[in-house]
Amino acid sequence: MGDGILKRKIGIEKEVDEFLDRVSEAGLLCKQGMDIYLKGDMEVYATYLKSIRDTEHKGDDLRRSLEKDLYEKTLIPESRGDVMELLEDMDALLDRYTGLIWQFEIERPDICVEFHEDFKELLSHSVESVEADVRSCRAFFKDINSVADHIHKVSFWEKESDKVSTRLQRAIFGRKDLHLSHKIHLRFFVKQVDRIADEAEDVADRLNIYVIKRML
């Protein structure tokens, strides 16, 4: 009886880890995808698009399976609601990566070479903030006392991405030779990338509350 329960739980622990792996993996794919896009190799970009879509599907399946297990097996009754929200929040971040890559594919923004490094840096900071979220989540499941060690890094990377975003927007709108429509299009993409870090920070804020609730 006890063994059965333990085995089932170890299975769920693995599923949670796998789900968070998918979120991390999507961040890396997103970064690599942006590099390829900026190089202009759309054929290779299409393969990244497929990879990130597969990762998103896997993530969705894992989340659904986890939610089903949590409810059907009535696991962790006191934290179930919080864990469900957390999983959905992390899944939303994964979706945002996918959405960004697709947006590049559909709208094909014309990014001037002088903005390439800033765009890469901006995405890198946003991915870092999500990574700090992933580490906080893992700690939330395994070692609640160390969540705080990771959670403050989310804010750090969000602020860094804000700085780059502001700098980049200033640079875009400072260019006299670009049409306003082009500038607005570029700003839209800056905002899209920056939003990932903003949402990561929102997730971290909610996670902070879940931690306090579990500590009580």
Binding site: R8, K9, I10, L75, I76, S79, F141, K142
Partner: peptide, 14 residues
């Protein structure tokens, strides 16, 4: 001991 939330859940339930 840093027990995983789900393992703790299983142990407590058992």
């Amino acid at each position: 001991m840093k027990i995983n939330m789900f393992s703790l859940d299983a142990l407590t339930r058992t």
